[in-house]
Design a protein around this nucleic acid. Structure first.
Length: 442
RNA sequence: GUGAAAGUAGCUCAGCUGGUUAGAGCGUCGGACUGUGGCUCCGAAGGCCGCGGGUUCGAACCCCGUCUUUCACCCCA
């Protein structure tokens, strides 16, 4: 088939049969968010470009090469939502959420757009479930969002983990091979990070010629990114470099300590991973990624952290924040890798099989009355044989088929067939009577 | 943005070292069973062999370009 055009690169069509999985997953997310005290927020799919370029950081990969940016007809620079947190922070300030009872706890399920090379688990449009907490400086909030993510994975059957189970460091290392693990790190605050940054640059500069090309570029622009370079040539230098964790100020050190204590107390499997740096500039203190061993190269299902300076940077009073984003498409890959079944299409309650025009006339009013009464009812519009209609009803997963032919019309009944048992009975040709016969009897 | 592999019916794939009208299974539709689904059998529809150019008497097959997909890198969800 020669089509006029196909879908743009890195996008997907979610077809009937597949979409039900998303409904199920999103339903779990919404219930969970509600139980944790998070309310939904919806922000526009597009924003002014400077929202992302300023909040995420001019030097980041997202801003430099991954944004869908265009000028609209009013010559404004517009960018499709490249990231979840910045728009929520904008709304928090613009819509005065800070004037409501604090803290503000919100969640969202929305599409994210990034111009990247597609790969398994990486699309140009993907969907994120994200949560944000504003107004809590303490580590309890960092831990709450991590607990929320872990609880979600647990409810979806992606991990054996249950809150409260005892986990020690050795068990964590073993779990990292087979199960979801939270990788955490601390980025410090602007004060201690600046001090650390100087020390790091001072250490790296004499070794610049031992580093790879990208690292030499990053040395001054974003030296912390040099540390997580995967190029083995850089490892001799980076492995001896001073670490951020050794240079945290008292406040940041205590915060990170508290996060680890609470995670341990609640039985969350975690490892301190100094390579978790995150590609967004706004993070402070805690950053984390939850990685799955079942996803191949794109193995981060959930990533987030604390952003205590972002609200002020965007023009508000200083309000601390913490949150995460979680990729739903990767979640689905993970479910499939584990062979986890999720509910499919909802079944049809009754299929009205008609034989001849008189039967169609009799069936249509009943069809709409049954639907009005809340039943999923379907019929044939193609004038097909009874056999074909039976076959079709079987495909739809109909619980019952109501057969209406000349015999039934003469008697004012339908032949009602229970598709699971094959048993048939006669029911009066009347929507209310039929409805009673259809009522689930379990 | 870098490197590698692959694109043949709706889906999964055959198709010999280039040689007439490109095949199978599954799925779809119909029939066997003119009033009864799942099993079985029979039949039909469905392909510019991703697209464009080149080589050749002749291209699904060889060459170049392009688009898309997959894998890895970068980075992320």
């Amino acid at each position: 088939m020669q089509l006029l055009t196909n879908r743009p690169r890195g996008t997907t069509d979610v077809l009937p049969g597949e979409v039900e999985k998303l409904h199920y997953i999103e339903g779990v997310m919404r219930r969970l968010a509600h139980q944790f005290g998070y309310a939904e927020i919806r922000t526009p799919v597009f924003e002014h470009t400077e929202l992302f370029s300023r909040a995420v950081g001019e030097a980041t990969d997202i801003v430099q090469k991954e944004m869908y940016t265009f000028n609209d007809r009013g010559d404004r620079s517009i960018t499709l939502r490249a990231e979840g947190t910045a728009p929520v922070v904008r709304a928090f300030l613009e819509d005065g959420l800070y004037a409501q009872p604090q803290p503000t706890k919100v969640y969202y399920i929305c599409p994210i757009f990034r111009y990247e090379r597609p790969q398994a688990g990486r699309l140009r449009q993907h969907t994120q479930f994200g949560v944000e907490v504003f107004g809590v400086a303490g580590a309890e909030a960092d831990v709450e969002v991590i607990m929320l993510a872990m609880e979600l994975f647990s409810r979806l059957g992606l991990t054996e983990w249950k809150p409260g189970a005892k986990v020690d460091a050795k068990a964590n290392a073993a779990a990292a091979e087979a199960d979801l693990v939270v990788h955490i790190n601390s980025m410090g605050c602007p004060t201690c990070r600046a001090t650390y940054r100087e020390k790091l640059v001072a250490y790296l500069e004499p070794h610049a010629d031992e580093l790879c090309e990208t690292c030499r570029e990053r040395l001054h622009r974003n030296p912390m990114r040099v540390l997580d370079c995967k190029n083995p040539d850089c490892h001799p230098v980076t492995s001896k470099a001073p670490g951020m964790l050794d240079h945290l100020c008292d406040d940041c050190r205590a915060h990170f300590q508290r996060v680890r204590e609470l995670l341990a107390r609640f039985g969350v499997p975690f490892v301190v991973d100094t390579r978790i740096v995150r590609g967004l500039d706004y993070y402070t203190k805690t950053v984390f990624e939850i990685q799955s061993p079942h996803l191949g190269s794109q193995n981060t299902v959930c990533g987030g952290g604390r952003y205590d300076g972002l609200v002020q940077m965007m023009g508000g009073d200083p309000v601390p924040g913490v949150g995460f984003g979680l990729g739903i498409e990767r979640l689905v890959l993970h479910l499939e890798a584990l062979g986890k079944a999720v509910p499919g299409a909802a079944p049809v309650d009754v299929f009205l099989a008609t034989m001849g025009p008189a039967a169609v006339d009799a069936a249509l009013p009943i069809l709409y009355q049954l639907r009005h009464a809340g039943y999923a009812a379907e019929t044939d519009y193609l004038g097909r044989s009874l056999k074909s209609q039976m076959k079709y009803a079987g495909r739809l997963g109909a619980r019952f088929v109501a057969i209406i032919g000349d015999d039934e019309l003469a008697k004012g009944v339908v032949t009602l067939k229970d598709m699971a048992s094959g048993q048939q009975s006669e029911v009066r040709l009347d929507a209310a009577e039929l409805g009673r016969a259809l009522a689930p009897r379990e």
